[in-house]
Amino acid sequence: MGGLSLNIMKNIYLVPLILTIFSLSVIAIALQLDTSPEMIVGESMQARSFPIFLMILKLILIGVMTYQFYKNNPKPVTLEKFHTWGSMFLFLLFYLLTVYTDMFIGIFVVIFLMSILWGERRIWVAFLTATVTPGLVFLLFDYVLKIRFPRGILMNLYYG
């Protein structure tokens, strides 16, 4: 079993394996759901039946897909670029900044860092984009669409 065959195995079985685990987990959770009395459900379905039916159908299709992968080895997927992982990390940073500071601080930081990460070399352009975009969007949503944004450092100052 060289590295290549391990890669092929990964190509063929990784996605079906993840999907199978997911489907089985859904079935396991669905089996824990409450059941309704006969007088409510009558001859219709229990709440758990439909999701279980869906997952069984999905498992059958996963079987077909695995067979197709086995017959025609799928193309290996290209590895993520640093930019992709970096962008996902910025989503996480956005979550933390929104929860602990303010949504608009989160948006500012993410736009600024994403511009730099994706190759913007002019710091002032990244800064301008990060400032003007949330500013305009805020004005539009606050004044025109009358949306109240979640409270945070900046919004507390604004709403009082």
């Binding site: 736009i111 600024f112 994403m114 984009t129 669409l145």
Partner: peptide
């Protein structure tokens, strides 16, 4: 440039998602 366009799309996406139900 993509480095300007897609960060703006990010801002529109998160605020749009929030604005729907607050």
């Amino acid at each position: 440039p993509t480095q300007i366009l897609w960060p703006i799309v990010f801002a529109l996406s998160v605020i749009g998602a929030y604005a729907f139900q607050g």
